[in-house]
C-alpha cells in the first residue's frame, strides 16, 4: 500500500515537468541581453507558479517515500516518471512516439519490474 506514496511522487514530478514545459513555450533564452525580459515573461505565466507548487509537493512526498523505502529501491523506481513524461508529451504536446522512445520505455519498464522482485 505504501507504494501509493511513490505513485504520488511520480505524479507530482510529471505535473512539475509539464508545467515548466508550458511555462517556457513562449520564452527563448538565447542571449544574456534578452535574459531580463524573458525572466519577466516567464514569471508572469501561471504555469511557472503551478510548476513550483508541484515541485514542492513532489519533494514533500519524496521525503515521505524515503522514510518508507530504501534509496536503492525508491530512486530507480522513480524512473517510471520518464515513461509518464513521454506519454504525457504525446497526449498534451503531440510529440512523436518513435521506435527509440518505445525501446527506451521497454527497457525502463523491464528495469522497474525487476525492481519489484528485489
Amino acid at each position: 500500500m505504501t507504494h501509493i506514496i511513490l505513485l504520488f511522487a511520480i505524479f507530482f514530478r510529471t505535473c512539475t515537468d509539464l508545467s515548466f514545459k508550458l511555462a517556457v513555450t513562449d520564452v527563448h533564452f538565447t542571449s544574456f541581453k534578452t535574459l531580463a525580459p524573458n525572466l519577466k515573461k516567464l514569471f508572469s505565466t501561471p504555469f511557472v507558479w503551478s510548476g513550483i507548487l508541484f515541485a514542492m509537493l513532489n519533494l514533500g512526498v519524496w521525503c515521505l517515500s524515503l522514510g518508507n523505502f530504501d534509496l536503492s529501491y525508491a530512486y530507480p523506481l522513480f524512473s517510471i516518471h520518464y515513461i509518464a513524461m513521454i506519454l504525457a508529451g504525446k497526449f498534451f504536446f503531440k510529440e512523436k512516439l518513435d521506435r527509440s522512445k518505445l525501446i527506451g520505455i521497454g527497457f525502463i519498464g523491464a528495469g522497474v519490474i525487476l525492481l519489484f522482485t528485489s
Binding site: P76, S100, K101, I105, F107, G111, V112, L115
Partner: peptide
Amino acid sequence: QRYMSAFLIMTGLLFISRSRHS
C-alpha cells in the same frame, strides 16, 4: 537485481536520448 535494474534503466535512457524527436 537492483544493479541489473539500474543497468536496464540506463540503457532505456540511452535509447530515449537517441530518438530523433528528442
